[in-house]
């Protein structure tokens, strides 16, 4: 008998929370980005777990698409970061707040 799904899901939730808290707390844009990746991985883990639990390949397909989207997101996101930080001194997300109301 293999590991029950609730263990995986709990682990997924823990990873997700760590990522979320990190995203909210850290101010280095790159690290924030990595935290987003963490959250995506947590979600992927949950998907794979459900795929196994429900014996449905759909969950794995979704993970596949999430990987593609994550790759694209990282490419564009890092492009934006590079474009912004090429011309400013600070390295933190708080330096960009032009849209302050």
């Amino acid at each position: 008998m293999s590991i029950p799904a609730s263990y995986y899901l709990t682990l997924s939730a823990v990873l997700f929370s760590i990522g979320g808290i990190g995203l909210l707390v850290r101010r280095n844009v790159l690290v924030m980005f990595m935290c987003v990746e963490l959250m995506l991985n947590a979600a992927n883990l949950a998907f794979v777990t459900f795929a196994r639990e429900l014996n449905d390949v759909g969950g794995q397909v979704v993970v596949f698409f999430v990987l593609v989207v994550a790759a694209a997101e990282v490419v564009v996101g890092l492009g934006i970061i590079v474009a912004i930080f090429r011309r400013r001194v600070g390295a933190t997300a708080d330096d960009v707040h032009v849209l302050k109301g």
Partner: peptide
């Protein structure tokens, strides 16, 4: 009044999402 909610900080918006 409401403009104060727009801090301009990305992390603050993310907090709202959370």
């Amino acid at each position: 009044v409401l403009r104060r909610a727009q801090t301009g900080y990305v992390r603050n918006y993310a907090l709202g999402i959370m």
